[in-house]
């Protein structure tokens, strides 16, 4: 329920102009402060991937996206071994931090819901 795939107030905040104007700077500061960008990660690299739906979403990335993701994970784990963040030129810039995986996860989730719907459908004769 909690975590990157759980409930979120973000859509509500984004839909209101005043609220997003107030919260956007805090959000950007928070994302920067959480430190994953210093290790060259994008936010979607942090999604919990040990679940079947995210695994299916991962298989739908383009070969290029897959390669880049593997590269970021490898680079970050190397930095972790060295106990130091990457050099500043390798940090993820805020405009590079795009949600490349979330649309796929949402699509898979929708498919699973649809399957559950068809599996438990009760049919009435017209």
């Amino acid at each position: 329920m909690f975590g990157p795939l759980g409930l979120s107030l973000a859509p509500y905040v984004k839909s209101s102009r005043t609220l997003s104007k107030w919260i956007q700077p805090i959000a950007s500061w928070y994302a920067d402060a959480s430190g994953y960008r210093k290790y060259g990660f994008k936010y979607d690299d942090l999604l919990v991937e040990e679940r079947p739906d995210v695994q299916r979403a991962l298989s739908r990335l383009t070969p290029r996206e897959n390669y880049d993701r593997a590269f970021r994970l490898k680079r970050a784990s190397h930095a972790s071994v060295l106990h130091a963040p990457l050099s500043k030129d390798q940090w993820t810039k805020p405009e590079e931090d795009v949600r490349y995986l979330r649309p796929h996860v949402e699509e898979v989730e929708k498919e699973d819901q649809e399957r559950a719907h068809w599996d438990s459908l009760s049919v009435t004769r017209k």
């Binding site: 498919e111 649809e114 399957r115 068809w118 459908l121 049919v123």
Partner: peptide, 11 residues
């Protein structure tokens, strides 16, 4: 969807 196509025509 593809699943919907199959299930609905099965019904």
């Amino acid at each position: 969807s593809a699943l919907g196509t199959v299930r609905e025509s099965e019904l």
